[in-house]
């Protein structure tokens, strides 16, 4: 099933490319308002039309991709950087008080719906892109901790780990030298999925006004701005909506494709 991988990769790289290009070039200045030219539908001069301030929506989508990717990337990074070591630790000390502490802490964070936690955190720290990153990052930690622990537990029973233990390697060294490389495939797949969830979460937070603050363009806020204008200028809602849908779809397909590619068990079963 390479189709998933190709389509997913294509969509994802399109978004990443748009974000990267936006650093050096956008068709219009993303902050430039041209109020007499507001609410124009897509045309040759404005490919995605203009918004209620007459800003070029194509440029905003490009820069908005940057915001989405930056927030999701750093948030997933936080989740991985903290979650993976926690998961490895819990697996290494299976059934100890440390394992209990980490996993019950995980359950605690898991018990709350992720977006509710994110709203709670931004409500305490104040709205803004950085706080959105922290908020989304925090609910990524248990995801990675749990998945790492689960995969690591089965590995600890394997002969090559036994051999390493007999050779006198410490638990920490075994975890990083032998366990981690063997769960990495799984983590990359999960990372892709979490990345798409991160983009959704960023859009959700921005939509309720807790994400990136104006004038930084963000897909979620573009949707919120469009809310009362849907009947006047449907493109204002359609375009950021489609951008979010396609990005999330692309990342999920990519994740699926990667799993098929990286997971030897699945590969055998399918062939």
């Amino acid at each position: 099933m390479k189709r998933n991988l190709i389509l997913g990769g294509l969509l994802s790289s399109l978004v990443v490319l748009a974000a990267l290009i936006s650093f050096v070039w956008t068709p219009y200045d993303v902050a430039a308002m041209d109020i007499p030219a507001k609410l124009r539908p897509p045309s040759m001069t404005h490919w995605f039309g203009t918004d209620h301030f007459g800003r070029d929506m194509f440029s905003m989508i490009m820069v908005g991709a940057r915001t989405s990717i930056a927030v999701a990337l750093v948030a997933v990074g936080i989740g991985m950087a903290l979650g993976i070591p926690l998961g490895l630790m819990a697996a290494a000390r299976k059934d100890s008080w440390l394992d209990e502490l980490i996993m019950r802490g995980n359950d605690l964070v898991f018990a709350f719906p992720s977006l509710v936690i994110a709203i709670l955190i931004t409500a305490i720290l104040g709205p803004g892109a950085v706080n959105a990153i922290i908020a989304i990052g925090i609910f990524n930690i248990p995801v990675f901790a749990r998945i790492t622990r689960g995969a690591a537990l089965s590995l600890w029973e394997r002969e090559f780990i036994m051999a390493a233990r007999v050779a006198g390697k410490s638990q920490a060294r075994i975890s990083f030298e032998h366990i981690l490389p063997n769960v990495l495939n799984l983590l990359i797949v999960q990372g892709t999925i979490q990345f798409s969830l991160g983009i959704l979460a960023e859009a959700g937070l921005s939509y309720v006004g807790l994400g990136a603050q104006p004038p930084v363009p963000s897909w979620g806020r573009m949707l919120a701005d469009a809310q009362t204008m849907v009947s006047l200028a449907p493109h204002m809602a359609l375009i950021p909506g489609l951008a979010i849908v396609l990005t999330v779809l692309g990342l999920n397909l990519l994740g699926d494709g990667l799993r098929d590619l990286l997971d030897p068990k699945l590969r055998v079963r399918r062939s």
Binding site: A31, A32, M33, I35, H52, F53, P214, P215
Partner: peptide, 12 residues
């Protein structure tokens, strides 16, 4: 909210 975005752009 909207006026603020416009004013911020004009002041900028």
């Amino acid at each position: 909210r909207r006026g603020g975005e416009i004013i911020a752009a004009q002041l900028a």
